[in-house]
Amino acid sequence: MFNYKNIMGLTSALALSMAVMPMSAYADQAGIDRASERLASYSEKPVFTAPGEPFDIRACAEGRKMLSMPNSSANPFLKGIINRMKAVGDEIGLEVVEWENQGQPSQWVQGFDFAIRDKFDVINLISGISPDTVEPQVKAATDAGVKVMTSHFYDPSFEPHPLLSSTLPIGFNEIGKILANWVTVNTDGKAKIALIVSREVPPTIPLVDGIETELAENCPDCEIVSEINVGVSEWGTKIQSSLQTVLQANPEIDVVIPIYDSMSQFVVPALRLTGKLGEVKVATFNGTPFVLDFIQQGSVSMNIGESLDWIAYATIDGHMRDLCGLAVPDKLNVPFYIFDENNAADAGTPAQFDTGYGDAYITGFRELWGLN
């Protein structure tokens, strides 16, 4: 028997479902559009912004010594920065020495002893060694007249260790947001992600927070399927095998985010051995040349680059300002720039540490320092 009320109820339900679905699709597209808009500035060639007033850097640096201590000398990103700092130091009269180590705290302690014994002026803890880990050594160096500084380590949200003379932070949270927005745009808001981190390194925390908060806002259908946490000293032995296991257990994963790009040397073999190379997108951060080569080869999809040469100039600028009693910049004066298949060749073939970003920073720093 014909039931008018049932038909009306069915019609109302259908109308309601039709109304809800377009709104949901609209919300998803709004998130993708927001993510795309936030990425735009990172696809433009970086510009130089002076981090402070001009000063005579040669007068400040002449005859001084700086010991630069990475969290591990096996990290090619940090090795590249230090090598560029050595070259800049040669021009201004600053001796830059790397404390070679394999990521062991006992080796960091030995580095402090060496710097104190050999009367260095500055110890530069670059990108990874927490001053909390070596607090007695920081105090001993400070008491001996050696200024201990960090670079490329703290997020601006961090409170620096009180014994540090100064610090040059970078926006790790900002980096996380860039990664999240790129993934959102390049998977149509549907990413299934394997995230590779080193949580013992303090900057990892704000970086991952940036990924998670930005995905929550712009990509609610994106999912971090698995987080793989590997200590820095174990990258070479654990990343590849751990990722292979995760990919085999979760075939829906279509994006891998190794948050520091030197991890990629172990990610690419895992993708190759699981048959996922070129199928799974890889998005990462740092701009290390061999990873930019991976982009050109189709093994990595995107890298948030920082010119290692630019980092070297900016680090020496900030540390010499501290050494000479000048105001220290509140951050490392280095912009982020997205490399992908469209512009990775701009970094050179093979890629170089300081290619693809333009040379505005070289002219800018040289004029700032009175070298031109």
Rank of each mutant, 00 (worst) to 15 (best):
N3H: 13
N3P: 10
Y4V: 12
I7L: 15
L10N: 07
A19H: 03
A19K: 00
P22A: 09
S24L: 13
S24R: 12
Y26F: 14
D28N: 10
A30K: 13
I32D: 07
E37A: 15
E37M: 13
S41V: 06
G52I: 12
E53R: 09
E53I: 06
F55M: 07
R64L: 12
M69W: 12
M69K: 10
N71H: 14
S72L: 08
A74N: 11
P76K: 04
P76Y: 05
L78I: 09
I81N: 12
R84G: 03
M85A: 10
D90I: 02
V97N: 05
Q102N: 14
G103C: 09
P105T: 02
S127A: 15
P136F: 12
F153T: 03
D155F: 08
S157G: 06
S157R: 07
E159W: 01
H161E: 02
P162E: 10
L164P: 09
T167I: 02
G171W: 00
E174C: 00
K177F: 01
W182A: 02
W182I: 01
W182R: 06
N186S: 08
T187N: 13
A194S: 08
I196M: 11
P202Y: 02
P203K: 01
P203S: 00
P206I: 00
P206D: 02
D209L: 08
T213F: 01
E214T: 07
A216I: 00
A216F: 00
C222H: 03
I224E: 00
V225T: 07
S226T: 06
I228T: 06
I228W: 02
V232M: 14
K238S: 15
I239Q: 10
P258Y: 06
I259L: 15
M263G: 09
S264P: 01
F266V: 03
L271G: 07
R272P: 10
E279R: 12
V282S: 07
V282K: 04
T288S: 12
G298K: 13
M302W: 01
W310N: 04
A314S: 05
R321E: 07
R321K: 12
C324D: 02
P335S: 04
Y337D: 02
D340P: 15
D346W: 08
A351V: 03
Q352S: 10
I362Y: 03
T363E: 15
F365C: 04
